[in-house]
Simulated scan of single mutants.
Amino acid sequence: MSQTIPLHSDPAFYQLLADSYARLLGRPLVPQAMPLAESTEWLYEHAPFAVLAHNTDPDPVFIYGNKAAQRRFGYSWDEITRLPSRLSAEAPDREERRQFLARVQRLGYEAGYKGVRITKSGQRFMIEEATLWQLLDAGGTLHGQAVVIPRTREL
């Protein structure tokens, strides 16, 4: 039986994140050029910003959350990668979040987003200057959506 690599350690998944981001936004996801394995590890372990990605399920589930995202939302890797992404927002904020995701689907990405999110323990916080983009491979296949959250603040 073969062991699959968790997405946080998978260079191919990192490549999907980084390439789709660069293609849509015209700038690199990781601030400096590094070998692939190093970039994969840096984004997960050391990035000073949160990165989350969810799949294409009808009720999308997070498939990736780097350490910065795990700390901010209060979930472990195993917990965050089982969480429907809609649960990262409180019920009253979910419609606004759904409209935002639909805009991203139409346009490919959106930058400068802010909105209220909720931690595992129920604490509310504001995400600011977030960039959400479509996880599209080179062939144009959609694998989900990802977000970079450079800044948050307590509410």
Rank of each mutant, 00 (worst) to 15 (best):
L29A: 04
Q70M: 13
A111N: 02
P11M: 02
G139K: 12
Y64T: 12
T81I: 10
A37V: 13
G139T: 10
N66Y: 01
E90H: 07
N66T: 05
G122E: 02
K114A: 04
Y75G: 05
Q3G: 07
G26S: 02
P31Q: 06
D57W: 05
H8G: 03
W77R: 13
A89W: 01
V148C: 06
D57K: 12
A33T: 13
V147P: 00
Q123E: 10
A91K: 11
Q105K: 14
Q15T: 15
A102F: 11
L16Y: 12
E95T: 09
A138G: 10
A50P: 03
R27K: 15
Q70C: 08
P58S: 08
Y113P: 08
R153T: 13
E128L: 15
Y14T: 06
T152L: 03
D10R: 05
T119A: 12
I80N: 01
L29Y: 03
A89V: 10
D93R: 08
Q99T: 06
P84Y: 06
Q15C: 12
K67R: 14
A91N: 04
D137H: 12
M126P: 00
A102M: 06
L135D: 04
Q105V: 01
A68H: 07
R27G: 05
L36Q: 15
H8W: 13
N55D: 15
E128R: 15
L43M: 15
A69R: 02
A12Q: 12
H143D: 05
G74V: 09
Q99V: 11
P84F: 08
V148N: 05
D93V: 03
D10W: 07
A53L: 08
Q134W: 00
S76H: 02
F125I: 04
I80M: 09
L29S: 07
T81H: 02
L43I: 15
I118F: 00
F73D: 05
R97Q: 03
T4W: 01
V147Y: 00
R106V: 14
I149Q: 03
E96G: 09
Y75W: 09
T119M: 03
L52V: 15
F125E: 01
P28H: 06
F125D: 04
G108S: 00
L52N: 01
L43R: 10
D137A: 08
A53R: 09
Q145H: 02
A111T: 12
P92G: 04
R117F: 00
I118R: 08
A91D: 04
L24V: 00
R98N: 06
A50F: 03
T81M: 08
T141R: 14
F49P: 00
R82S: 12
P31R: 12
D19M: 07
E79Q: 13
T119K: 14
Q32N: 09
R72G: 04
